[in-house]
């Protein structure tokens, strides 16, 4: 299987009051084409930092990322991931417009994307505060998919939603990933969600990957004591 992403020895240090804190400490992994990889671990273990390094929102101190194609991201807080002063439609169109697409064409495609994520087309004209969390998250997925990325990163994309909406979004992601054939990096502390969507999972603890395997393996037979703790605390 061809790899869409290869990350090698990523290292990122943050300074809090001049005290260094190694958020990501020598992490290497790859994502295959069409694969859905889970990245699990407690808050503050460096999951989101990895997402930001891959999307080049921050630069790592050491290591390299090789990425084949475009990457898009769905954020944790749905309402904050759209500009409060612009409509959801504007947000969805922004990426396409930046790629040089005409306004009419971009709007047409934005509406198709709304259909794809099962959101009514009237949301094109809504502002973020006029839509619920689940609706915003669907729009955020539409925005990410509109530019046809080869890799989609979901950074705790369902954690801010209530349980029924979480299930809907998870089903939507599963469907889209199956149909679209793109790769998915699912960052979550929710092992049940990881098990539902992913074929392989990495467990992170204190900036390092401590365990890797299929979700069933990891959940049923954890090798590391920390993984056992994580599994027990969630399930």
């Amino acid at each position: 299987m061809q790899n869409i992403l290869e990350a090698k020895d990523l290292k990122k240090v943050f300074y809090k009051n001049r005290v260094p804190f190694e958020a990501v400490d020598g992490v290497s992994f790859h994502i295959g084409k069409g694969e859905c990889l889970g990245l699990a671990g407690e808050s503050g273990c460096g999951k989101s930092t990895i997402a930001k390094i891959i999307t080049r929102l921050i630069m790592p101190e050491e290591g390299s990322v090789r990425l084949d194609g475009k990457v898009q991201m769905v954020f944790q807080t749905p309402q904050d991931s759209f500009d409060p002063r612009r409509t959801l439609g504007d947000g969805i169109m922004e990426g396409m417009r930046n790629q040089g697409m005409g306004k009419k064409q971009a709007k047409e495609r934005a509406c198709e994307m709304l259909d794809l994520v099962e959101l009514d087309r009237k949301f094109f004209y809504r502002y973020p505060h006029e839509a619920s969390g689940g609706e915003c998250q669907r729009a955020a997925i539409a925005r990410a998919l509109a530019v046809e990325p080869q890799l989609l990163i979901c950074d705790e994309a369902t954690s801010a939603l209530d349980v029924t909406v979480q299930a809907q979004i998870a089903a939507l992601l599963k469907r889209l990933q199956k149909e679209g054939g793109m790769s998915l990096l699912l960052i979550s502390h929710d092992l049940a969600l990881v098990q539902y969507l992913c074929s392989r999972v990495l467990i992170m603890h204190q900036g390092r990957i401590i365990e890797e395997g299929t979700p069933d393996e990891v959940i049923q037979d954890p090798r590391e004591p920390y993984t056992r703790l994580l599994v027990e605390s969630v399930l």
Partner: peptide, 26 residues
């Protein structure tokens, strides 16, 4: 550092465009 600024950067908007379209209006 709001997610929507990150989203705008991810969608390929340059610094000037982000300042003009997302930061100044807000």
């Amino acid at each position: 550092d709001a997610p929507y600024i990150m989203a705008a950067r991810l969608s390929g908007s340059g610094t000037w465009k982000i300042i003009r379209k997302h930061i100044i209006p807000n």
